[in-house]
């Protein structure tokens, strides 16, 4: 018996390469008249002042867990800081973690899965990545960190759009989509975005795993690009797939999306997926899925970060709902054909 889900403090992780506009976004979130109080964890080397009552400096100490899993790294400083912040529970509604420009988001995310105390008191809300419209495509070539940040994101802001022409912007969008087809994209100037698009996303909540991405998996598989989001807020505009958008294939980082209408055999699926993340875990940044098992009236949902998998039965399939299993893996040099064959062999 610990704190229930409702009482868990949501944590938003802000990433983005140096100079993309993370701190601008952070200050915007803090200064909007939303009535929310945030505790902010910033990195030690941040230069720009943060105007907020609760600001904690972190030193991004990443270490490996002693569980034989080489990609199982956590942020030790976050474990301590969140423990300390919880003493002031009631003084803030949410936590924002700003990482350094060179940080890999995985250890931050894994901290919430690997430390029971942190997981009992807080929940990861979303990884938000700020990308520089002008410079991102260069960084994708020379900075592996920048690519990780895009691949890992639930929400991506293409910022500084005023510095690029339309064609260049579409190029950046296409480059991002080649790496991460399911993140929510927003084009912004000076990080102007409705903060509801950035905080309170519940992107890691198993119950909402795919609700938050209504076009989940559609993009890549069908190449069926249509507007399926309302364009109803005044600043920032949501990304829409457009006809004529270039299709890129990133040589290194890709997503593999799988789907089948045939029910899966859980006795085949679980060993397969566990074996897959055990072997490919270092290369798999994130995965998400909704599964339909044979003779099982309930949807099974799961997500993962590298080798860590988290899954549960979610709710019964609706009477008029298409019973279909869908999974996406985002990662580096993924053996797509092997993954597809493995998935197919899980069909009951």
């Amino acid at each position: 018996m610990t704190t229930s889900t409702q009482e868990k403090i949501p944590v938003t992780v802000l990433t983005g390469y140096l100079g993309a506009g993370k701190t601008t976004l952070l200050n915007r979130i803090l200064s909007e008249p939303h009535g929310k109080k945030f505790a902010v964890i910033v990195n030690e080397f941040g230069e720009i002042g943060i105007d907020n009552e609760l600001v904690v400096n972190a030193d991004e100490e990443v270490f490996e867990m002693n569980n034989g899993c080489i990609c199982c790294t956590v942020r030790g400083d976050l474990v301590r800081i969140i423990d300390g912040l919880m003493r002031r529970k009631g003084k803030f509604d949410a936590i924002i973690v700003e990482t350094t420009g060179l940080a890999d988001p995985a250890p931050v995310a894994q901290t919430f899965f690997m430390d029971e105390q942190v997981g009992a008191k807080t929940k990861l809300d979303a990884v938000v990545t700020v990308a520089d419209a002008k410079w991102l495509h260069h960084r994708l070539k020379d900075a592996p960190e920048a690519k990780n940040q895009i691949a890992f994101a639930d929400v991506i802001l293409i910022n500084k759009t005023d510095l690029v022409e339309g064609e260049e912007l579409r190029e950046v969008e296409a480059r991002i989509r080649a790496i991460n087809p399911y993140a929510r994209l927003h084009c912004t100037e000076r990080a102007q975005v409705d903060i509801a698009e950035v905080v309170g996303r519940n992107a890691f909540d198993l119950d909402r795993i795919l609700e938050v991405e209504p076009s989940f998996l559609e993009a890549e598989e069908e190449h069926d690009h249509h507007d399926d989001h309302d364009h109803d807020h005044d600043h920032g505009h949501e990304y829409h797939h457009r006809h004529g958008l270039k299709h890129y294939h990133d040589e290194e980082m890709q997503s593999v999306s799988l789907r089948t209408a045939n029910p899966l055999n859980p006795d085949k699926f679980f060993p397969w997926v566990q074996d897959l993340v055990a072997n490919e875990g270092p290369n798999i940044l994130r995965c998400k899925g909704i599964l339909s098992f044979k003779d099982d009236p309930e949807r099974f949902v799961f997500q993962g970060v590298h080798m860590i998998l988290d899954g549960d039965h979610q709710r019964p399939w609706g009477a008029d709902e298409k019973r279909e299993s869908r999974i996406i893996f985002i990662g580096r040099n993924l053996p797509e054909e092997k993954i597809r064959q493995g998935f197919d062999s899980c069909i009951a």
């Binding site: 270490f63 867990m65 002693n66 569980n67 956590v74 030790g76 430390d115």
Partner: peptide
């Protein structure tokens, strides 16, 4: 004796 991040 130290306590560790892992349950050991």
């Amino acid at each position: 004796v130290t306590t560790m991040q892992e349950p050991t």
